[in-house]
């Protein structure tokens, strides 16, 4: 098990594996997204309250779910990077941050575009919206911190510490709608009573599950691509890189 782990963690193995995996991940992600978006925009019926405005759910919820999952990924990779000094984990921390920031910004903006026609306001300072904005600043903090150091490994470790400190915000975002009064509604899918008695009807649910899966696979592909770049940058003078691109 450990030899397998170390093999995978070696940059050349990772690079080749990622090369194999990424096109498939990306193709599957885009296929799921295409079907999910078509289902969400055309096949799903309009909502009894919100009419068509609810269709924003098919991009807003996956973006918001990813914004939390990517941060969790960063924190776990950060822990591994700090404890075991694993290079690939360091790389994962710094390369996940820009992807996470982009999906957090997307969650915030699609949320505003959903809030205006339904709530009647683009923005309010309730616990959910505020904590999600804090999440965006945490991502920007990691990105900034990474650029502040000239040594890549020192930078990655500093980012790992920040990722670990900020991970407390992840449960806060998720549970904000339960712990505090908020304008934002509760969780539709990730709730205990929602599993027993679905809070969204079947024809509206399946496109959401497809776009969710599509977003997650897309993140996998995007992260692998960025990690490959970072591996190349750090190892650009290594023999395997030179051999890989020898003309």
């Amino acid at each position: 098990m450990w030899t397998w782990f170390h093999r995978l963690a070696s940059p050349p193995t990772f690079y080749r594996l990622a090369n194999l995996l990424t096109p498939w991940l990306l193709a599957l992600a885009l296929a799921l997204l295409a079907i999910g978006v078509y289902g969400g925009l055309y096949l799903a019926p309009a909502d009894y309250q919100q009419g068509d405005a609810f269709r924003i759910i098919y991009v807003h919820v996956p973006a918001a779910a990813l914004s939390l999952s990517i941060y969790m990924t960063m924190a776990v990779a950060g822990g591994i990077a700090l404890i075991w000094r694993m290079k690939l984990a360091e790389i994962a921390v710094v390369t996940a941050a820009p992807i996470g920031a982009s999906f957090t910004a997307l969650a915030l903006i699609t949320g505003m575009l959903w809030g205006k026609p339904t709530w009647g306001a683009y923005w309010v300072w309730d616990a959910r919206l505020t904590s999600e904005l804090v999440l965006l600043f945490l991502y920007l903090g990691v990105i900034g911190l990474n650029q502040a150091y000239s040594d890549a490994r020192t930078a990655a470790r500093a980012c790992a510490w920040l990722a670990l400190v900020g991970v407390i915000n992840v449960p806060i975002v998720h549970y904000s709608v339960q712990w505090w009064n908020s304008l934002h509604q509760g969780s539709t899918i990730l709730s205990i009573d929602g599993i027993a008695k679905p809070k969204i009807s079947g024809p509206m649910l399946w496109p959401l599950l497809l776009t969710l899966a599509g977003f997650y696979l897309f993140f996998g592909a995007a992260l692998l691509r960025r990690m490959q770049n970072e591996v190349l940058l750090r190892e650009k003078n290594a023999r395997w890189v030179q051999e890989l691109f020898a003309i």
């Binding site: 009894y48 309250q49 709530w119 929602g194 809070k199 009807s201």
Partner: peptide
């Protein structure tokens, strides 16, 4: 001075709501 709507986390077509 301002009224906002707070909808819940249930989504269904009008027929089901009926």
């Amino acid at each position: 001075t301002r009224i906002l709507a707070k909808h819940d986390e249930n989504y269904m077509p009008p027929r089901v709501a009926e």
